[in-house]
């Protein structure tokens, strides 16, 4: 596949976009800005043909950077991040919303990116694990994870940290038990849970810089 690496001026130039408009044919592209894309296509063509053209323009912000992309509607936000934007910090652990490894923030709220179609995130602000630190300065929860050894293999860790930051911001980190419940959407097979709770409790108490 071609890596659709983000550029600031792709919109209006890419072959895919032209293909999209061509394919749309009778379709009415009311607007390609965040709010509304209306397509009233007629009969669907055969998948083999349709699949080749069926890309939509998508504009979203990832870790503060604007991306203008062409994506198939069936592409999930998770696969978009990992396979097209090249941000592999967000992990695929089940692809079914059953493990939390793919947790990212959309407009500050934690979600499972494996069950969110990329096109549903038009105009949204996405934050992934790669966007949490400020340059070389780690986020306090990242620091706390290292301090408390809140992981082993590290695969669930980005999801745990994104979930943990949200857990604190939501006000669900009031006690160890509350954290346990509100961090239960993130599986960890190595069994780092007690240390994850410690890291979140300490970061919550630190109270700064979330």
């Amino acid at each position: 596949m071609s890596k659709t690496l983000p550029t600031s001026d792709e919109q209006g130039k890419g072959a895919s976009r032209r293909d999209f408009l061509k394919w749309s044919g009778a379709a009415v592209a009311v607007s390609l800005t965040p709010s509304v894309v209306t397509r009233a296509a007629g009969e669907r063509a055969d998948e083999t043909i349709a699949g080749f053209f069926e890309k939509m323009p998508l504009k979203l912000e990832v870790n503060g950077k604007l991306h203008q992309l062409q994506v198939e509607p069936r592409t999930t936000l998770l696969d978009l991040l990992r396979e097209q934007i090249g941000l592999t910090g967000t992990k695929k652990g089940c692809d079914q919303g059953q493990c939390g490894a793919c947790t990212v923030h959309v407009n500050g709220r934690r979600i499972n990116s494996c069950l969110s179609l990329a096109v549903m995130n038009e105009g949204q602000k996405i934050t992934t694990i790669e966007g949490l630190a400020k340059g070389d300065e780690l986020h306090p929860l990242q620091e706390a994870f290292i301090k408390h050894d809140a992981f082993q293999c590290g695969y669930c860790t980005p999801g745990q940290i994104m979930s943990g930051v949200a857990c604190i911001n939501e006000g669900h980190a009031g006690s160890a038990d509350e954290i346990r419940e509100f961090m239960s959407g993130n599986l960890c097979r190595c069994g780092a849970y007690p240390h994850i709770v410690d890291a979140i409790l300490e970061t919550k108490k630190g109270g700064n810089n979330l």
Binding site: K3, T88, G89, T90, I129, L138, Q142, I146, D149, G154
Partner: peptide
């Protein structure tokens, strides 16, 4: 000692088998 690869793991920089560009 803190985990020597901790920083890579908490920042998403650690590359696993399916993540090589």
């Amino acid at each position: 000692i803190d985990r020597v690869d901790g920083k890579q793991k908490v920042t998403g920089q650690a590359l696993y088998a399916g993540e090589y560009p």
